[in-house]
Every structure is written in C-alpha cells, then in structure tokens.
Design a binder for these strands. Sequence first.
RNA 1: GUGGGUGUCGUCAAGUGGUUAAGACAACGGGUUGUGGCUCCGUUAUGCGAGGGUUCGAAUCCCUCCAUCCACCCCA
Length: 421
Amino acid sequence: MLTNIPKGTKDLMQDESYKWQFLENKFAEFCALYGFKEIRTPIFEHTELFQRGIGDTTDVVQKEMYTFEDHGHRSITLKPEGTAGAVRAFLEHKIYAETQPTKLFYKTPCFRYEKPQSGRLRQFHQFGVEVFGASNMIADAEVISLAYKFIKYLGIEDLELHINSIGCPECRAKYRLALQEFLRPKFDELCPTCQSRFDRNPMRILDCKSEICQDLVKGAPVMIDYLCDDCKEAFEDLQADLKALDIDFTIDTGIVRGLDYYTKTAFEFVTNSIGAQGTVCGGGRYDNLVEELGGPSVPGVGWGMGIERLLMVMEANGIEIPKPSTSDVFVATMGENAKHYGLKLVSQLRDNGIKADLDTLQRNFKGQFKYSDRIGAKYTVVIGDNELETKLFQVKDMDNSTQYEVKEEELIQHLVEKVNA
RNA sequence: GUGGGUGUCGUCAAGUGGUUAAGACAACGGGUUGUGGCUCCGUUAUGCGAGGGUUCGAAUCCCUCCAUCCACCCCA
C-alpha cells in the first residue's frame, strides 16, 4: 500500500525523464517561433471556473473532476484541462487591455477521475496553446500549423488532422433539433448508450461504434449543412488557409468536442497506432468562453496535446529521442592519495563543462572500470601511485580500447577537446 | 460506472495437487587487490498479489479482496 502509486498515475523515472525534457524544450522552441509566450498557472482553481467554463452537463464536470473543500471551505478542483485556467489568468491580469492577439502556451498536469486504460490516466500532462483576441480563421490555421509542424518535426507521420465545424450556439441549436427530429422515430432501436446521448449529446450518436446505430444514422443531417452564413464562411476560410499551408486534413463531421465552450472550428490529430484513445491533440475555437467567464467579448482558439499519448505514438513508430550521455569522463583511482587527486580532477573537469564522475562505493580497480563502462563514459582516466609520481596520466578511450599517456598540465585541456570533438 | 484478460525474484518466465519453486537476462562478488564491454565461477524467492477455505499435502482447486492491463463510456 505504502509503495503503491495511486491508480491512474505514473512515476517518471530517471531513465525516461530525458524524453520529457526533450519534448518540453522542443515545444517551447516551436512556440517561440510562432510568437507564443509561456504562462504557468496553478494546478487547481475554484471549482466554479470549470463548471462555468467546461459546462455543467459535460462528463468531465459531472463525474470526472477531483474536487475537494479546502480548510477555508472553498471548493477547489484540480485542473481537468488547461484552457479554463488560461482564460482566468488572461482576465485576472487584464491582458485583453494589451496589444492583441495574446498568444500563450503552457505545459500542465491535468486530472480526471476515470478508469485508466491505454492512453488514459488520472493524472496526465498536456502541452497547450491559446490565442486570444483573433476572430479570423488565420489564427485557427496558425494554431493548427504549430501543432502540425511540431508533430512533423518529431518525425511522426501517422497522425491525421481531422477538422470540423460545430457552428455557433445559434446554428448548432438548429442542427441539434434537426438531428433529434431525424432520430426520434428510431429512438427505440438505438443502443442504450445512444439513447442516453439523445438529449445530452446527440451528435455523438453519429460516430457510435454499434453497427445498428451506424445503420440508423445513415442519411442523418450533417452539421455542416446547417451552418449559418458566418460559420460556413469561416469553415471555408479555414480550409483555404490550411491548403495554403499545405497541411493535409480530412473533414470529419463526427468530431464533437466534449467541452461545451467550443464554437466553429473543432479539430483533432488522431492515430490508430496507440489503441482506442487515439486523439493526441485536440482543440478548437471558443468565441464565447471569455465572456462566459465574466470578461469582455474576446474570441479564442487553442488546443491541448497529451504528452503521454505523444510519446506513445513516437514509440509505436520507432522514433527515438536522443539519450544524453550520463558521463563523459570517469576517473578510476587506486590508493588514498590518488583518490583525493581524482576527487579534485573530477571537480575541475566539471568546472570545464565536462560530465565527470568517480567511484563512491570503494570498488576495486576492476570494478571501477566496469562501472565506467556501465555508465557509458567515453574516457577513463587512471590515477595511481605511478601517475602521481611521473605526472603522466593514463587515458583510455572506452570506445576503441586504446590507451595513451597525457601530461598532468595538459590533461584537462586534452579531455575538454576530446569530449567536445 | 459496465465488461474481459492477467498477477511466480529487478525483468522475461517454467511449473496445472506431492520431497529442497526450473531457466534466461540484469545486479552483486570473484578468477591471486593497475584496466570495462567477451568468457568462466559463485551469490540472489521458506516464497508464488493479499486473506480465508478444501486437502494428509496447494503456486497449482474454491471464495473474497487488491493490483494491473485492455475495451465500452468519455477525452489528451
């Protein structure tokens, strides 16, 4: 029990953290290229922020939030997603009063109380970007382009971009009615889950996996046909923008975001190589969210990318992240005098930017070499009584097993050059 | 929340009622205290997810629980 990690969480251990560091650094670089700046907001917020932002009737809010009362009797919730907190900060710091648009990125843990499965955790992590203040579809295209380029940079080829428009509140409401009218006569034939979706989220019925529902849904009205002029034009603009960027996409009328705040653009980068949870990046436009949360009428568009899923896709495609060396130089010593000399040498090497290490377990000489090999040192320096006396040190190149002597005064410089070569 | 699979050393595993629970890899030690990756030798589960039960006898059968994986739902 004490040594059991909580359900649905993962430790990131020392031999894997480099992968995350790599992705985090690259993501920040890409964001910088696109003019996005990082924000860091708390991992918990007032519960009401999510209720209002994500929507009271969504699954996320209704049954998946980690909510608790703090000692001041406030209802607090661990972030289930990143956008709400970003909007809150945007409002609280009155960023809308500055030069627009505002382009923000973040990385954050998210928490949802769900039953874990492949690609689904209770604590997972997202990269996210948000653009505030831009209503033109160019912003949507930019945001999609950022995700696209980042994904391509990482070498991932099997993520497909799916886009859809889910309209604005007006046209979506009309469409919902039309869809419900279409399905109402077939209600009794729908699978139980779809019957429950009928009122709550009828658009989900369109991509139900049950064959019966698939059949019943044939000929159903499509959201795109119900878009108002404004939404329709926006969707066409987006497609034109993506084409201009040479970004391949497919229109997927089945995309329904599970968070209420989305309007117009909805998109996902999906794969089928990592199991059932194939959405690696999902996002869209939310033109009413800022206002809904008590701010001025400011449009927004953004996405979240699941870091664990991203890594799963990379792994499934055999993409390797360069593993940093743990040690460039290992100093093997014999005897007390040599030990002190070695301790100082290692310290000096580090001062010169060399990853250096020495034995701290009183291993015998052979054991030290073995350890040097294990940690992947490129060079091993030998220090014993002979070396201390002659001021000539043995340097062994671990890759090709050659060994040679270097004068004491040239040793550090020599190693610096070798390692950086 | 619903369903299915799995649980034997750090890892991969053999074992399906009968004396001391194979093996491989890893780890650690050693092959006459100055040299790694190869090789050789040695060490490493009174224990088989936990707790009950059946039995002369259980890792092997039964029950309960727990963990984990996968799928539905939902989403990153």
